[in-house]
Write a protein that binds this DNA or RNA. Structure first.
Length: 892
DNA sequence: GGTATCACG
DNA sequence: ACGTACGTGATACCA
């Protein structure tokens, strides 16, 4: 049975709908007739045809006011309160919510898109159904392609259907001849001039006889009436032109995937909410009829109906059974004081359950009953922050299998700049429903209530409601990912990464606590000594850690020249003190003191505090939804900022050791990954060639910027060029570069200009990226990661400039982040597949660290290097340096 | 809870 | 004339 694909001409149908029904507004004063009529026709057709696929094409050039007809307010467009405007869904929002793909293409009309897709569908053996109010489309009719033309009449909507044979039967011309009919009769709405004096009747008669305008023109003398004959001769050029205009282009260069058009359930909670808001009552009724026997109505708030609490073994066993039958469920584990207290589930679309632990029903018993469910490879799971749940489950000896979606990660992929990804937001954003936040229900801080203290009804609706939200938000998030072309990013990068990060966290990093203690003691002694010296020099005791008190000593008591100020007073930052080094001996003492205190508190004491006393390991958390660029971050402790630059600090790395003497540490880092990414995405020949031939990139830049031969570049010039390269990646500014290099702004400007002269495509890339950000409001990485930059169009200079730098930097930093994530997944899978004992334990943005078993060194080295260098294929090679060592310090 | 400082890529 | 590089996290101070 061949698949049906319905292709709707959005513009013409909404026009029909708009004119076909009387102007009506709902109780909010929102005019809804155009969109209402459109949907009315759409639903009727969907019921009749039951297509497998659907898409709606829009004409970007056509006036859009009828798509936005809701924005009229009480008859007065300007009268609508500003705060109401963005809340009113437009037709496109409704289509998006229903999961119906919109097709739009700059420079092409909806007709052309429809023609193109229909032809391709026909080639694929599908049955295309084109829906349009425009008879132009009749030229596309064939034996397979059906054209449906709805007509809004008093008694309702009537639809005329045309296959090729129907056209011949009813009008007497073939679809191709119909183009010539149009060309002769013209069409004012499509700006086709036609031939004056020839209307529909005459046009059809002429074409029936002569089949096309060329032939008709050749025989113009024979044509009657004489007026038509005369005009055809006079306006023959115009007739040819009209034919060109009337011909639908079926070769529009668009790419699509049939799966994008797949018609799922168009009636979901989000759509329901919109219909409620617009008071489309008849559609809501249609929906509730579509719902199964279930009493659940979407008009009911999601916290009110669906849920039940389960508090006995017998009852939960039954629930587990039901979930197995459903084949798919969402779940949330609730914890208090680091101990799980219950689980909520949602399954079979409308069923929500809260299973709480009690004296009679322990969490251990609950977990034991749920174990087969979580471990089943048949049953699909939806989670929110699955990595967290995996740790809890692991504690009960449970391995989570067949996780199909993580709504937190999905939300992050759609918009990485949000502070948090919580349930109330998901409900609002993806389901259009209001759900209370955790804070509203439980409060926060010290007065935070326990879930167990809630009334049973509230507890159940709160916990199961969250499971309900993620169960239903999943479809919406997936749909949005599809629309944004981010399915690959989610399914091939972020989703598989969850397990990799889980494994890294779970495995941990062994710490030589003995050595750490010695290190802290050593620092403590030095600090004590320095403190005394500083007090002596200052002539009094004060808190050196307080920038305020330190400022008073330095700039008031010792009268040192003040460099910079901060909001609150004098700046005592290292950058400022460094310039005062020669002024007073206290400065170097303070700088050293600062360095040592930092090492002791943050890295000494800080690390100690998070070592698991039993295993002597630290288990950092790798956050997957924090950064705006796609990098991961590390907390408790942050293992991505362990000192390395200064020798004193670098020593701390000696306390990071392998689990036992069977293992060593293997470190691999990408060389210049961001500059390589820049070379690739900017397509700069000079840069690409340099990386291909393995040149020293900073030296090359120095030679280009300072206009000296390559072998005459001084170390100083190379180091300055390095700063320029950094600046480029960050979105350069002359002022900042001048600060960084301690040169004049003029000189810095000359460096930048010199750079862009030599790497012209880099400048082109920067300009184009900013332009794209302005137009689209966002920038993307090579793998479709997207960051919205609202400030790019700000009228405030500083904000706008920031937006521009972000626009330039994010694709570079983000693409590098994508690449190493891909490498991590590949390395992880290879180690697993080959059943090796070696483990990936850390990522530091361009660096991976593996705890490698001594028997596996050569094999793992080969895997690590290969997978990192071949994670993706760019126009430049990726280059990886590797080091093996007994401690992290030694992997240099 | 905001600010300053400083550790990393 | 604007105010200044991109991305993070931890700690100590202080209102």
């Amino acid at each position: 049975m061949s698949k049906k694909i319905m292709l709707v001409d959005g513009n013409s149908i909404i026009n029909r709908a708009f004119y076909g029904v009387p102007l009506l507004s709902n109780s909010e004063g929102i005019y809804t007739n155009g969109v209402y009529g459109f949907l009315n026709i759409l639903f009727k057709l969907l019921e009749e045809d039951q297509p497998d696929y659907i898409a709606v094409a829009f004409d970007l050039k056509a006036p859009t006011f009828r798509h936005e007809v809701f924005q009229e307010y009480k008859g007065n467009r300007k009268g609508m309160p500003e705060e109401l405007k963005p809340q009113i869904p437009l037709l496109k929002d409704i289509l998006d919510a229903m999961g119906i793909k919109r097709l739009e293409k700059e420079g092409y009309e909806a007709d052309d898109i429809l023609g193109t897709v229909a032809k391709r569908a026909e080639e694929q053996g599908m049955q295309p159904i084109i829906v349009s109010g425009d008879r132009d489309l009749l030229q596309l009719a064939t034996e397979q392609i059906k054209i449906r033309i709805p007509k809004t009449k008093k008694g309702g909507t009537e639809i005329e259907d045309y296959y090729a044979k129907d056209l011949i039967e009813k009008i007497g011309v073939t679809p191709l001849e119909y183009i010539d009919v149009k060309a002769l009769m013209g069409d004012s709405s499509d700006n086709i001039p036609g031939v004056p004096g020839i209307g529909e009747k005459t046009a059809i008669k002429i074409i029936q006889q002569y089949h096309n305008i060329e032939n008709a023109i050749a025989h113009a003398d024979e044509i009657k009436p004489s007026r038509a004959s005369e005009n055809l001769k006079t306006y023959q050029e115009q007739a040819r032109q009209s034919k060109f205009l009337a011909t639908i282009c079926t070769q529009v260069p668009i790419e699509f995937d049939w799966e994008q058009f797949k018609l799922d359930s168009i009636m979901n909670p989000r759509v329901c909410e919109i219909f409620k808001q617009l008071e489309f009552k008849s559609f809501l009724d249609r929906f509730s009829m579509l719902q199964e026997t279930n009493s659940v109505s979407m008009n009911t708030h999601l916290s009110e109906v669906l849920y039940r609490a389960v508090d006995s073994k017998e009852a939960f066993e039954k629930v587990v059974e039901e979930i197995f039958e459903a084949g798919k469920f969402s779940f949330i584990i609730f914890s208090e004081n680091h101990k799980p207290i219950g689980i909520s589930f949602c399954y079979a679309d409308t069923k929500g359950v809260w299973v709480g632990s009690s004296d009679e029903f322990s969490i251990e018993e609950i977990m034991a009953l749920a174990k087969p469910l979580f471990e089943s490879i048949e049953t699909e799971k939806i989670a929110h922050h699955a990595k967290n749940a995996m740790h809890i489950l692991k504690h009960f000896g449970i391995t989570l299998r067949n996780l199909v979606f993580d709504t937190m990660i999905g939300g992050y992929v759609l918009n990485p700049t949000k502070e948090t990804y919580e349930y109330d937001d998901l409900a609002q954003e993806f389901l259009g429903q209001t759900f209370p936040s955790e804070e509203e229900i439980l409060g926060k801080g010290k007065s935070k209530k326990s879930i167990m203290n809630l009334e049973e009804k509230d507890r159940t609706s709160f916990t199961a409601g969250q499971a309900y939200i993620i169960y239903h938000a999943e479809k919406q998030i997936k749909q949005k990912l599809k629309e944004n072309n981010q399915e690959q990013l989610y399914y091939e990068i972020e989703h598989p990464l969850i397990e990799v990060l889980f494994s890294m966290e779970e495995y941990g990093f062994k710490i030589d606590t003995q050595r750490l203690k010695e290190y802290v003691d050593e620092l403590e002694e030095k600090i004590e000594l320095l403190t005394k010296e500083i007090y002596e020099i200052a002539g009094e005791e004060f808190n050196i850690n307080s920038p305020k008190q330190l400022g008073v000593i330095l700039f008031e008591k010792l009268m040192l020249p003040m460099g910079k100020k901060t909001k609150t007073g004098y700046s005592t930052a290292a950058e400022v003190l460094e310039k005062l080094r020669a002024e007073h001996i206290i400065i170097e003492k303070i700088l050293e003191y600062r360095q040592l205190v930092k090492l002791k508190t943050t890295y000494g004491d800080g690390l100690f505090a998070v070592v698991n006393q039993e295993t002597q390991k630290i288990h950092s958390t790798f956050n997957q939804t924090i950064t705006a660029t796609g990098r991961i971050s590390s907390t408790e402790p942050n293992l991505q900022n362990i000192p390395i630059k200064l020798e004193m600090g670098r020593k701390i790395r000696k306390v990071f050791i392998p689990s036992d003497e069977e293992y060593l540490l293997l470190d691999a880092d990408y060389s210049q990954i961001e500059l390589r990414v820049l070379a690739h995405i900017a397509k700069d020949e000079t840069l690409i060639r340099a990386f291909r031939t393995g040149e020293d990139i900073h030296k090359l830049t120095a030679s280009q910027v300072f206009k000296v031969p390559l072998d005459e570049v001084t170390p100083r010039q190379r180091s300055n060029a390095k700063a320029v390269n950094f600046g480029i990646v960050y979105g350069i500014g002359a002022f900042s570069l001048s600060q960084d290099l301690n040169i004049s702004r003029k000189e810095a400007e000359a460096y930048i200009e010199g750079y862009f002269e030599k790497y012209p495509n880099v400048r082109k890339y920067m300009d184009e990226t900013i332009k794209q950000a302005r137009e689209l409001g966002y920038v993307t990485t090579l793998f479709g990661r997207r960051r919205v930059i609202p400030d790019i169009n700000s009228t405030n200079f500083a904000r706008r400039s920031f937006g521009e730098r972000v626009a330039m930097n994010t694709p570079i930093q983000g693409t590098a982040a994508d690449i190493i994530k891909i490498a991590m997944i590949k390395v992880f899978n290879k180690l697993k597949e080959k059943n090796l004992k070696s483990r990936l334990i850390l990522q530091v943005h361009d660096e991976l660290l593996i705890e490698v078993h001594k028997d596996e060194i050569e094999e793992v080295k080969q895997i690590l290097k290969y997978e990192m260098e071949h994670a993706v294929s760019l126009d430049v090679p990726l280059d990886v340096d590797m080091h093996l060592g007994k401690t992290w310090f030694d992997t240099k």
